[in-house]
Design a protein around this nucleic acid. Sequence first.
DNA 1: GTGAAAGCGCTAACAC
DNA 2: GTGTTAGCGCTTTCAC
Lengths: 349, 349
Amino acid sequence: MTTMSNRYQADAAKNRPTMRHVAALAGVGIKTVSRVMNDEAGVSEATRKRVLSASQQLNYQLDMAAGSLRRSGRQTLSIGLLLPSVSNPFSSEIHRALEDTLAARGIAVFAASLDDDPEREKALVAAFLGRRVDGLVLTPIAKSQSYVIPEHSRDLPMVFIDREPVGIEADAVVTDNAVGAAKAAAHLIAHGHTKLAYLGDRADIQTARERKRGFVEELGRAGIATSAVPVIEGLHDEESACQAALGLLRSEDPPTAVFSSQNLVTFGAMRALKELGASRRVALVGFDDFTLADMMDPGITVIAQHPERIGKLAAERLLARIDGDDSTPQTYVVPSELIERGSGELRPR
Amino acid sequence: MTTMSNRYQADAAKNRPTMRHVAALAGVGIKTVSRVMNDEAGVSEATRKRVLSASQQLNYQLDMAAGSLRRSGRQTLSIGLLLPSVSNPFSSEIHRALEDTLAARGIAVFAASLDDDPEREKALVAAFLGRRVDGLVLTPIAKSQSYVIPEHSRDLPMVFIDREPVGIEADAVVTDNAVGAAKAAAHLIAHGHTKLAYLGDRADIQTARERKRGFVEELGRAGIATSAVPVIEGLHDEESACQAALGLLRSEDPPTAVFSSQNLVTFGAMRALKELGASRRVALVGFDDFTLADMMDPGITVIAQHPERIGKLAAERLLARIDGDDSTPQTYVVPSELIERGSGELRPR
DNA sequence: GTGAAAGCGCTAACAC
DNA sequence: GTGTTAGCGCTTTCAC
């Protein structure tokens, strides 16, 4: 028996030990080891200690994959998260909040970046499915998400974030984009502006469309002719936004207030205003908050989103689904918030 | 036969289909399905097509976990990544670069946040090991990493980033912290400053210690008495850094140039300078680059790190180890870069 | 080219 | 309390 234990021990030092190794060393059956490792009842304290000691001696680690293969329910305690990019500040805040909520349940997170590529979206979903994740949290970018319908019907929990999915009914957690943009317009109008301008992202992005819609509708409510308000779309980076803003501000009848629909666009507008020395003359409200916004001169007024709340809510919905909630899928709206910092409170002239 | 196929098909619509389902529907043996799904040779084109069609019809997805259980080598095509926080900009840039390099090999990334908690470090490593990751990339924060020695000896590939591990010999990828800080000191001295000040992070963080060492050593080389240079450490957030900077700048003999060892500290210093209206009078160089640094007034001169290079290099080292490289572990140093933007080029008086 | 049998590490079901 | 047997979905081995 001693030789056998030794052999198992030597074996386990190089190769990864299994329950058999632990069982042999502890002198018990394999099922007993399983009971101890899973904190199941029905093991005497003495046996428990022997098993624990053997497992520590061998540095044994339960193999979750092998376990879940046999276990009914087949949970892997891991989920897949698809983001525009893991390095995008908005996305990574969501990621963090999700992680915190899921970690409390011992769930690990696979994270991946989409880069606006619909093909990648499908490929990454497939990659996650192959790893048998217990759920999926994704930022949809493909035209339709109907390709996941088979999985969804198999009760794979799924929550969409930032944008609502198309072609499938599933839970979603989004910002009130239209309302937020309308708040920005109303704020500028309340400060005396009638000559507004809109700098927007690509129209194929759902959130961008929503923001534009909200902004324009608010103009209508305020009785400002939409035709008098320049709306520039298709801005996806700082440089193009800066050029667009420069064009507007140098025109014959320049706006006295600008709304930018997204961070990079806001940065471009800020650069343009700075270049023209107009930062304290032309009002600016940007959608989405950013670091150092309060350190600018003037501070930049923004419609802040709450990524941490989106992430937390998405995680909670996912857990509820994992726990068997089968109510009708729903879209949850997280309100945005106007933060006054100076640039949005400048008055015309 | 038809009834059987139908039964399997109905079964597969609700439950997840297995190779058996596909085999039954295609009218072949299970091993043939395996061959097709793994792109193995030795299957006639006709059979291949039948199998492929059946698998698409059922929406079949190969189960990687089950496969790797039996497969020799047992690769799961997933790795674990441990970061200070997934939402930290520096970390998430590393994350992104890692992901890109590993995605090319079909490797998925588990990401998790440490929050400066040594216990979490150990727990998360255990969680990853239980999921049988093929490798680990980690930012060490515990006092010693000797707890992973057993895994390391079992040839689990492992690369440390940002900080070198203690108590174990393993690959590491780090910034040249001391050299970078020395460059900052030299830059300020070259611009005529002799009255410098150092604002630093907590001394228990390795990178913070290195930066201080490099800075102080450069003072020595320049013949500036270290005793004449205030060195404040233990600053871990913007507020404490701001207070420390205010104290220094309001003292009887204030510094003409400040070096801040980290982003949040830099922000605090910027705020203090702004509050005192000293932004254009007192020089500032910060360690680590940040968004909008060029939009400040003046632009903020920084010692930029290259997270994308750190991430890429770490991924490459990990892949090399996974591929069997068993050369002596090594520390790879990624050079930092001085970026002049104005604040660091201000002269005294 | 193809398939049957064994077994990866574990848990379910049941016997003792 | 504890151990034995079967089998999760797949790949290996080897026979046809």
